[in-house]
């Protein structure tokens, strides 16, 4: 994990010197966080998560001069990732693929190798809406506060809390025996 000072130095090298080496170090530092975020949104689709994560970093590189440092770089990166996911969803809906893709992922993804608890958690997460799943991922798995989730998703804090509250009730009910 990069310290704030190290991160700022790398960002300065990227912005001033267009240093690919510095940007590579930033990618390495945030790769697993961003990939995990997408894995949870896409219900474990490795290939899709990998693609979306790559797109996120490419967009971050192209827009890095627009990063003003008003929020943490991590928050800014997650915002790009979230927008990337929604761009993907919009394209999918336009192509009329619907939710069958995610259902297929749940079935095809080495289901036999998963424990009962993992299957229960995945089924429970699939029952959430896209927005609820995103908010749950950011709050419970990425441990981000409501304020940052609101910055990332562009939703007002009240809406984030509302999504969380409904998702929590649904998850608690479905995962009663596991919680």
């Amino acid at each position: 994990m990069l310290s704030r000072v190290e991160e700022l130095k790398l960002l300065a090298r990227c912005v001033l010197g267009d240093s690919r080496d510095a940007f590579g170090q930033i990618v390495e530092a945030y790769r697993s966080d961003i990939t995990r975020f997408f894995l949870n949104l896409t219900m474990g689709d490795d290939a899709l998560s990998d693609d979306l994560a790559q797109e996120t970093f490419i967009k971050a590189y192209l827009g890095i001069r627009g990063f003003r440092g008003l929020s943490k770089f991590r928050t800014w990166l997650y915002r790009i990732a979230y927008n990337e996911y929604y761009t993907y969803l919009r394209k999918r809906h336009e192509e009329h693929l619907g939710d069958d893709v995610i259902a297929d992922n749940l079935l095809a993804d080495g289901h036999g190798a998963m424990s009962d608890a993992q299957i229960d958690v995945r089924t429970a997460m699939q029952s959430l809406s896209e927005q609820q799943r995103a908010v749950v991922t950011l709050f419970y798995i990425e441990d981000l506060p409501i304020r940052k989730i609101s910055d990332i998703t562009g939703m007002p804090q009240g809406t984030v809390k509302s999504h969380l509250s409904r998702a929590k009730a649904k998850l608690a009910q479905l995962l009663e025996k596991d919680v």
């Binding site: 894995l39 949870n40 608890a117 958690v121 997460m125 991922t137 798995i141 441990d143 608690a172 919680v179």
Partner: peptide, 11 residues
């Protein structure tokens, strides 16, 4: 919930 999700969601 947080502990459960962290343990059983894809990494």
């Amino acid at each position: 919930l947080g502990a459960l999700l962290k343990e059983h969601t894809p990494q």
